[in-house]
């Protein structure tokens, strides 16, 4: 069962990711990304991170990709680009491929070589049980408002930046409109 779930999710993740990179139509790329996101969410569930899985779907699928689609549709950039004519130069694509494979090799080596050295253990991750369905969430909450309370408070500043930033970028004055 575990294996089955993992394989399915992994295929979703990889196919989606390749779709993002290879599909020429931005909308299709966005849809591929949703596939990846769902795959990741499933993997989260498989790793006992129920809360995160839900948040992943809500935030990513529910907000981020929707925003992407909005932008694509609003700007009308939804026509397919011809990937071959993308001005890439002759070197860049193979170079990027080599870099990417190199990175993958490096990372894989790192994680495989060190698979036995992950020996520091914590207090345990609570999984959802019949008695305490919210255990995982409580634990995360404790972590957020305990060890990471500074980070949590900082997110508020981060969001303010995002909001103010969008205002700065989006607001147009009359003078600009006539100018442009």
């Amino acid at each position: 069962m575990e294996l089955f779930v993992f394989v399915c999710a992994a295929i979703m993740v990889l196919v989606g990711a390749l779709g993002v990179v290879l599909r020429s139509n931005p909308v299709h790329a966005a849809l591929s990304m949703i596939l990846t996101l769902f795959g990741v969410a499933v993997l989260f569930v498989a790793r006992e991170a129920n809360f995160l899985a839900a948040v992943q779907v809500i935030v990513y699928a529910g907000a981020i990709v929707v925003l992407f689609l909005f932008v694509i549709m609003l700007l009308g950039v939804d026509r397919a680009e011809d990937l071959r004519t993308e001005p890439l130069g002759n070197v860049q694509r193979p170079l990027a491929l080599v870099l990417g494979i190199g990175m993958f090799a490096l990372l894989t080596t790192a994680v495989v070589r060190s698979r036995d050295s992950l020996r520091f253990k914590g207090d345990g991750v609570k999984t959802a049980t019949l008695e305490d369905a919210d255990g995982n969430i409580r634990q995360i909450a404790r972590s957020i408002f305990g060890d990471y309370v500074v980070a949590f408070e900082l997110t508020s500043v981060l969001l303010i930046v995002a909001v103010v930033g969008t205002v700065v970028l989006a607001r147009r004055r009359k003078s600009e409109r006539t100018a442009s």
Partner: peptide, 8 residues
């Protein structure tokens, strides 16, 4: 690592 902070 059985450590919740990763999820946080």
């Amino acid at each position: 690592l059985t450590d919740i902070n990763g999820q946080t």
